[in-house]
Structures are given as structure tokens and as C-alpha cells.
């Protein structure tokens, strides 16, 4: 998934499945089956991701969307409590605004 070609201008609705795929790769398919992943899902409360899994997720986002977005730079302006309560809709919006 990380090696896909450079994404074109994607809509928020198109970005969300990409993020879902990253989450599946990070936490494992067997756990994702029990989750309802939506734009409202937050990292820790809904997806039960811990900090090192959020790191892995961030790296996948960076590798896939590349230089068009400064994902780490965006996250670095937030403290950890803000980061872990981010939901996928927030991330989708940010990515979409950069593409």
C-alpha cells in the first residue's frame, strides 16, 4: 500500500479508505474486523491505537502522500493529548487541503 503511485487530487471520501487500509496494516486485519472505522473514529478511544502504532500510521501517511503534505509538521504543533484524540475526519480534511 505504501508503494502506490503519487495520489492525484483525491476527495475526502476517497482518502478515508486509504487511511482505513493503513490502520488495517498497523493493527492487523483480525482486529479491524471488529471495528467500525468511520470519519468519526478517534485513534485511541475508538481504534484503540497506542502511540507507537500512531507513529507507524503517520509514517504510512507520509510515505503515501509524500511531499505534498507535511504530516509530521502538522502533528508537531499539537500536544500528545490532541494527537491521540484526532479522528480520521480531521486527518482526511488536512490531507485533502494539502493535495
Amino acid at each position: 500500500m505504501d508503494q502506490l503511485t503519487q495520489p492525484a487530487k483525491l476527495s475526502e471520501a476517497e482518502i478515508l479508505p486509504v487511511l482505513k487500509q493503513f490502520i488495517t496494516e498497523v493493527i492487523g486485519e483480525e482486529f479491524v474486523e471488529d471495528l467500525d472505522i468511520t470519519a468519526a473514529s478517534s485513534f485511541t478511544k475508538d481504534l484503540e491505537m497506542d502511540s507507537i502504532e500512531i507513529v507507524a500510521f503517520s509514517e504510512k501517511v507520509k510515505n503515501y502522500f509524500g511531499k505534498d503534505i507535511d504530516f509530521t509538521g502538522w502533528l508537531s504543533n499539537m500536544d500528545l493529548d490532541q494527537i491521540i484524540s484526532l479522528n480520521l475526519g480531521d486527518i482526511t480534511k488536512y490531507i485533502q487541503s494539502c493535495l
Binding site: 502511540s51 507507537i52 500512531i54 507513529v55 503517520s58 502533528l75 508537531s76 500528545l80 494527537i83
Partner: peptide, 8 residues
């Protein structure tokens, strides 16, 4: 783990 440094 390294996440203690990674984000900020």
C-alpha cells in the same frame, strides 16, 4: 518507546 520523542 520512540514515540516519546516522535511527535513534538
Amino acid at each position: 518507546n520512540l514515540s516519546i520523542w516522535y511527535f513534538n
